[in-house]
Design a protein around this nucleic acid. Structure first.
Lengths: 331, 331
DNA sequence: CTGAAAGCGCTTACAG
DNA sequence: CTGAAAGCGCTTACAG
């Protein structure tokens, strides 16, 4: 690979002049400029990003730490992040943690050391101190979906409202025994959905049908197992709310194996739908969250933070999106 | 952030000694060593990866260029790549191109400039020259799923066999009018599936039912639209093979809207299944490809290439995996 | 066993 | 308008 030195030699100028011409950071005589660009072309010179980053202390790269990509809302959010990042000429580096705090820790450690200017995270909540360290060391941080820490900016959906409105909606449909398949309530979204569910049940004077399991909750199997238990525990159950679409697919399977019909015997809805729900054989009613838009916003937020001069970084912002109810066949 | 200089000062040694102690690259007196590690701890020093990379010319990072993450087999392959990369202490950087040659070009250009030591790509086939340039410049390259270029190592599944065996299987089930929903035949997997399909039809003395559309083929909508056309064009159609699971979900929807039943009226199967197929309401028969394993292999392949001394890089290897038939409800 | 020094490929004050 | 030089944070021959 040609270096700036080679270009300088070929163009018969100093390397500093090449730098200035290329970065357009000072006036360079048109002729010199032309010679330089000719040399660049001839050598098909490409600047070394490492060296630039070393000098400027900036990588123009955002790290995104996510618990899951496959069949989860995070890959849709990611599309939004990438689109926005590309607009500002930032690259994105995705780390997939599988919701394992150890992998998360390792990913964060790796990212902090010169890899990125900012980190967007949907975290396990187990590495908050590390995250603070990272922020203190000058790397911008923002949370997506899971706001584990109020001192760090975040973009989330209103999960409590999802739990509340979902329950109310099913009650209006005549359901009396509404189950909720949730996940680890240490994570903000699960905690909040549960809160909303309980609040609605109280107003409606209904009782709780709740089941949980020890497995990772963002999976098909989890939805399947929890649905099975809910159905066994209460034979009058007439509705199941799942936290995320993928659980709903598992629940659908469990319901079918019990020879029950959706929606006639059991109504089924997802509390944080994304595009999957509309594609299923029995399409799924859902409170859909604007994943793409949320991704764009959090990317914009972190880029603004990165590019703000260090003496006046914006203070932590928290952006909450509302979900919108989309009725489909499953209710 | 503390630098190596700070550590050296605190430990009262030269920075070169710190470097040696930390990298274990030469004998350092135990006491000195201890002082250095104490200083590292005290300052919570973290080496700057940029600077290391600049000096050593290595980033310990692999770029992965994929056409799609959401609901596609690529996120499963990615899991395998990440697992293997982590084992060798490599980071992975994912670029999502949405199968757009321009985005792909941009991603590749970005990666080549000091970002990564190697690139794994499932490409559009439109940037082969650029890929050659990149390889020539000393960055390792490997292809996954799509082997557009025999001079570059690859890990793929035997798509021709998939097309062939799928067709034979459906014929054994008694199907006479077997449709194929495919995709852009400039891409090797689509081209090969089609080849296998035609070969089997010829042996069986059956005629082709083939439809294609101009949209990106890796989507639900594509499967839906093509299935609809196939059903309209031939009312005796008794089977549909889709190239990928997500198309199958769309096809299922189209079949259902026609008031036809799967598998009684129409048998449906996917030619490159991954985990989605087993989770659907009507589970989908598929030729399953070992996505996770393929990811691991391609990661291993590229890491070996990266770490080989530049005078004896291994020559291009091509690894082909077989799919295995998993019968489920849809046939 | 350890230090002084050069160098990786750039950027950016400082002169002129 | 352009060059010479220092420096970003490391690694690694070269001495001793």
């Amino acid at each position: 690979m040609a270096t700036m030195k080679d270009v300088a030699k070929l163009a018969c100028v100093d390397i500093s002049t090449v730098s200035r011409a290329l970065n357009d950071t000072a006036y360079v005589h048109p002729e010199t400029r032309e010679r330089i660009f000719a040399a660049v072309k001839e050598l098909s010179y490409q600047p070394n990003v490492l060296a630039q980053g070393l000098k400027k202390g900036k990588r123009h790269t955002i790290g995104v730490v996510l618990p899951r990509l496959h069949m989860a809302i995070f890959s849709e959010i990611m599309q939004g992040i990438e689109k926005e990042a590309r607009k500002y000429n930032y690259a994105t580096l995705i780390c997939n943690t599988e919701d394992d705090p150890e992998i998360e820790k390792e990913s964060l450690s790796r990212l902090r050391n010169g890899f990125v200017d900012g980190i967007i995270i949907a975290g396990t909540g187990r590495n908050i101190r590390l995250l603070h360290d990272i922020k203190a060391s000058g790397i911008s941080v923002a949370q997506i979906v899971r706001d584990q820490d109020t001192s760090v900016s975040s973009v989330i959906a209103n999960y409590e409202a999802c739990g509340y409105e979902g329950t109310k909606f099913l009650a209006r449909k005549g359901c009396k025994e509404i189950g909720l398949i949730n996940g680890n309530t240490h994570l903000a979204p699960y905690r909040d959905r549960y809160k909303g569910y309980k609040a609605a049940l109280k107003e409606l004077n209904l009782k709780e049908n709740y089941n949980t399991s020890l497995e990772p909750s963002n999976t098909f199997e989890y939805g399947y197992n929890c649905a099975k238990k809910l159905l066994e525990n209460n034979e009058k159950l007439d509705a199941i709310m799942v936290s995320v679409d993928i659980q709903g697919i598992g629940a659908m399977r469990a319901i079918k194996e019990k020879k029950l019909r959706v929606p006639d015997d059991i109504r089924l809805m997802s509390l944080t739908g994304h595009t999957v729900g509309s594609m299923l054989e029995t399409t799924m009613t859902a409170l859909e969250i604007p994943a793409h838009e949320m991704g764009e916003k959090v990317a914009k937020m972190i880029i603004e933070d990165i590019e703000a001069p260090s003496d006046k970084k914006p203070s932590a912002q928290h952006l909450t999106f509302n979900a919108s109810l989309v009725e489909r066949e499953s209710t």
